[in-house]
Simulated scan of single mutants.
Amino acid sequence: MEWKNITRAEQVAEIQQQDGYSLIFKHSTRCSVSAMAKRRFEMDWSVIPENTSLYFLDLISYRDISAQIADTFQVHHESPQILVIKNGDCILDASHSDISADEVAEVINS
């Protein structure tokens, strides 16, 4: 599996319009907690169904897009944070130590 970087505001609308499941990982490149959460998620991401689109946002470089994501999917901004999007709606958001590939897989597979 591989991250698709979010670098343009238009990508948020594209994610919202996709059918199926997408995951957005909002990451602070200046935060050791965020680095740890990302590393732990990536170690376990083999449990995520293959047809899930995985998106990565460097929220330090793209703060405006981070705010757009929070507004579009009606979630409180946190970092690190994952959002699972299904057919345009956020069905799971988690932050910090609550970020779990197993939980994401469970939600997607249910």
Rank of each mutant, 00 (worst) to 15 (best):
L57Q: 07
I99N: 01
S95G: 13
R30M: 15
R40H: 10
T29C: 04
D64C: 01
S97Q: 14
P80Y: 00
L92A: 06
I15T: 05
D93H: 14
A35L: 10
S28G: 04
K4P: 08
H27F: 05
I6H: 02
I82Q: 00
V107L: 11
S100Q: 03
S110H: 13
D19C: 09
R8P: 06
Y55N: 12
V75Q: 08
V33K: 10
N51D: 15
S66L: 02
K4N: 15
E14N: 11
Y55Q: 10
D64S: 08
D102G: 14
A67D: 15
P49G: 03
N5G: 07
I48G: 01
M1C: 13
E10N: 08
D98K: 14
M43E: 15
S53P: 09
K86I: 02
L57N: 07
A101H: 02
A13D: 14
F56I: 10
E106P: 04
V84F: 03
A105P: 02
V104W: 05
D89C: 12
A70R: 09
V75H: 07
I82V: 03
T29N: 07
L57V: 08
E42H: 11
M43G: 09
A9K: 10
T52N: 07
D19E: 14
K38R: 12
D71N: 15
H27M: 06
A105C: 04
I15H: 03
R30W: 13
N5P: 09
I6W: 03
S61G: 11
I82A: 00
S66H: 03
D71C: 12
H76V: 15
S97I: 15
N5C: 09
R39V: 11
E50P: 11
F41R: 02
W45E: 09
P49E: 04
A35F: 10
D98Y: 12
I85L: 06
A67F: 12
H76L: 15
T52A: 07
F56S: 07
D19T: 11
S34L: 02
N51M: 13
E10F: 05
R8C: 05
I108D: 00
E10V: 09
K86A: 06
S46E: 12
S66T: 01
F41P: 00
I60R: 05
L54A: 10
I24E: 05
L57A: 06
M43R: 14
E42C: 07
S22E: 05
V33P: 06
I99A: 01
E2C: 13
D58S: 11
D64N: 09
F73T: 07
Q81F: 00
I99V: 06
I65W: 01
A105Q: 03
Q11Y: 06
D93R: 08
S95I: 04
Q16D: 08
H77F: 09
M1F: 14
G20C: 02
H76D: 15
A70E: 12
R30L: 15
N5S: 13
E50V: 11
H96S: 01
Y21V: 01
I65C: 01
D19V: 09
D98R: 13
E50G: 11
A70Y: 10
Q17G: 14
E10P: 04
M43L: 12
T7E: 10
I108K: 01
I15G: 05
S32D: 12
I48N: 00
N109L: 13
N109P: 08
S79R: 03
I60V: 11
D44H: 13
